[in-house]
Design a binder for these strands. Structure first.
Lengths: 232, 232
DNA sequence: ATATTAGTGATACTTAAGTAGTTTTACTTC
DNA sequence: GAAGTAAAACTACTTAAGTATCACTAATAT
């Protein structure tokens, strides 16, 4: 699963493009990149926070689901879907607190990893890093906040529509990133269950809002979708 | 509502004790404190983010509710209950993004305030501040994350019990901080409605878990309360 | 070609939570 | 002490969402 990445071109490129290390001088970049190794998770690899506690990761490619489970009911809740250039876990990086999460690769995932202690040393050596972490953490906070507000104030059709809208590419106007997820994974993203999500998807289909396929969906009527999201 | 705070002893004391400025040298502390004014909000003062957009606040005393509303249903959702030494809004401080929130003082609230641009200048002048902000933001993230997980995976009795448990003082074993809130405000905290919260409070009372009074509650049976929170 | 599996579509049923409305209680103030 | 008010307590009703189950279909493996 692991692979030495010293001097690896892919690793260096990822580091250079990371919002964390962007604009660092060449020398530092090389030094930093040399501390990472490349880790490859085949599709559907599952890992608990305990196994990853002492490592910091930057995703190179593939999607990684960050989730919680309720053993009692077996229900799952996806907190984040991480992608290229995302990193984790920031919480355990900045403080030694327990952050009980699970991770699962939705497809083959490639990432860089390094001991968290090394990143903590960098935080001291390169104070700029603290400044770079803040906006990232802020965005995560806003994301979860939005989820909490939606889950509290909106019903499932509106939450479903919001999720889809959020993942429509501004230029192409096409649904991206979540268009190939199963009903089950969509349900985990809005905090519901497969059957309920499917029920509302059928409604959306009959209303001409979505075109549904097997692990594939497409937005047909954006105007109506927006109406759904805003409860009109 | 406002009051000059230059050289104010209360302001300086608050700044000294803030996790943001702790251990700064005396000279810097005086300089920083001199830039704040004291703001007093009478009980139940309500303010939108638009009115506060360009200011940064540190609470001296009193509780401040941070919430969202759904105009359609009139329902309210309390994201945070800020208290002494809390500050806001960190999101608009670190980035110029829209963070549409409302604020309301639950009782008379005293706070320090200063233009957000000044704090941004301090972030450059004192790089240490970035480092101090990180754990605070991390805690907020964990808070909202916990809310999201609870709201998604637990039913109202468990969420209610969790909320109470979270506010029990470790030493005194007494319920604090939220013990004097109305059913309505408790409902806003767990993302439900007054009637539903009251229904479950009655259950808790009959089961001998809580003692209920007018704007006052007390935990009688902690063991049972923990069972409720963990769905046993 | 057949078997297996994962994902989807659809039905019937259960239930927790939301909503509306009324009554009761406790506190305030005049 | 009476009147007024706000919170809490209670009742009846509605509904969205969850659950269980089965049928169907596409993809994959054997």
């Amino acid at each position: 699963m692991n692979q030495k990445g010293k001097g690896n071109a892919l690793g260096l490129k990822t580091i250079e493009n990371s919002i964390l290390f962007k604009d660092f001088d060449k020398e530092s970049l090389l030094l930093i990149a040399s501390q990472f190794i490349i880790e490859k998770w085949p599709a559907h690899t599952c890992s608990s926070c305990y196994q990853l506690r002492h490592k910091f990761h930057i995703i190179i490619s593939g999607r990684l689901k960050v989730f919680k489970t309720d053993k009692r009911t077996g229900r799952e809740f996806t907190l984040f879907l991480l992608r290229k250039n995302d990193f984790f876990d920031v919480i355990t990086l900045i403080e030694d607190c327990s952050h009980k999460l699970y991770y699962e690769s939705l497809e083959d995932v490639k990432m860089l990893s390094t001991p968290i202690l090394i990143v903590r040393r960098w935080l001291i050596k390169y104070p700029m890093l603290n400044q770079r972490l803040l906006p990232y953490l802020g965005k995560q906070l806003l994301n979860i906040e939005e989820y909490a507000v939606n889950h509290t104030l909106l019903e499932i059709p509106a939450r479903l529509a919001s999720l889809i809208l959020k993942n429509i590419n501004q230029e192409s106007k096409k649904l991206e990133f979540i268009n190939d997820l199963s009903n089950e994974e969509i349900a985990n993203l809005i905090g519901s269950t497969r059957a309920v999500v499917n029920r509302h998807f059928q409604e959306f289909k009959h209303e001409g809002i979505l075109k549904l396929g097997r692990k594939n969906m497409e937005v047909i009527n954006l105007t109506l979708l927006i109406k759904k999201a805003t409860n009109q």
